[in-house]
């Protein structure tokens, strides 16, 4: 029995490490590429360590526009506000769909699902027209408002709440807590792992969004980082891989930091009763 479980453990580690290599290598290569000169990147060299390490690409990007800080701040504002709003609205909606019993629940659920299935490309132009009627074009609000909820995340939260232990809510009810108090004080804190997951994905969505800023924003000082970086990476004919690698590394750093912060939350279970 002991022997067998030891073998299993070894196999498990081998699988996990193999998979880690498959996922880690391309990322590491992209990271290393940002420190390589153009010729080395495109010559099809699988090496990670740069032969001629250089900071030239980073210097180019940081020096390319005086608006760089501005873009970064814009991205932080949009992503942070957008994520906070999303967390509350999505979690509330997901909770209602999973845990409350009311007429129309199934219909709303299927309507949400159906909306999620409409190809986004088709909605871009109608949304552009709606935002322009609302006078919101070329404002940061136009980046937040249409994305203030995410149907995918509402759906995800609903599914999480379906397997959320019922006894906790019932206990709260017995203690005389109302529905809203139960939700904000008990349910949301306990749903931390799924909320953290949602937060990271939502933040990433806002941070990396390219289509919406490109369509809705026209003033350079209101650009987000992704849009700003894109404008001067693609300025010249032909892709400057060295610049675009550095740009992509700069733009994902905040997400990695965020992920490391939330990494602890992901593993905190709901049950505090010593089962962990």
């Amino acid at each position: 029995m002991r022997e067998k479980s030891k073998i299993l453990k070894v196999i498990l580690y081998i699988v996990l490490i193999l998979y880690a290599i498959i996922t880690f290598y391309p990322f590491l290569w992209a990271l290393a590429a940002s420190f390589k000169p153009l010729k080395e990147i495109v010559s099809g060299n699988p090496n990670i360590i740069p032969k001629h390490a250089t900071l030239a690409s980073y210097e180019y990007i940081f020096g390319a526009s005086s608006l760089f800080t501005r873009w970064f701040v814009n991205s932080v504002i949009v992503s942070t506000i957008g994520t906070v709003i999303n967390i509350f609205l999505n979690t509330m909606a997901g909770y209602a769909l999973a845990r409350l019993d009311f007429p129309g629940r199934q219909r709303i659920y299927y309507a949400f699902l159906a909306f999620m299935m409409v190809p986004a490309q088709i909605l871009l132009i109608p949304n552009f027209l709606i935002l322009s009627k609302m006078g919101l074009l070329d404002t940061l609000t136009s980046l937040i408002l249409p994305a203030a909820i995410n149907i995918g995340n509402i759906f995800m939260m609903r599914q999480f709440f379906l397997s959320f232990p019922k006894d906790i809510e019932e206990a709260a009810e017995v203690d005389g807590l109302g529905r809203f108090a139960t939700f904000f004080r008990i349910v949301m804190p306990l749903a931390r792992p799924s909320i953290a997951t949602q937060a990271v994905f939502t933040f990433m969505g806002f941070w990396n969004n390219f289509m919406a800023p490109m369509l809705y924003i026209s003033t350079p000082s209101k650009y987000t980082l992704t849009l700003g970086l894109q404008t001067f990476v693609s300025q010249q004919s032909g892709i400057r891989w060295d610049h675009s690698m550095a740009a992509s590394i700069i733009s994902i750093l905040p997400i990695i930091v965020l992920y490391i912060i939330f990494n602890g939350y992901f593993l905190q279970g709901i049950r505090m009763d010593g089962e962990k």
């Binding site: 998979y19 880690a20 996922t23 990322f27 992920y259 990494n263």
Partner: peptide
């Protein structure tokens, strides 16, 4: 492990 596994979602599509 989790952090490493998460990285592909961050690698830019151009890269």
């Amino acid at each position: 492990f989790r952090l490493i596994y998460f990285l592909p979602t961050l690698t830019s599509s151009a890269a």
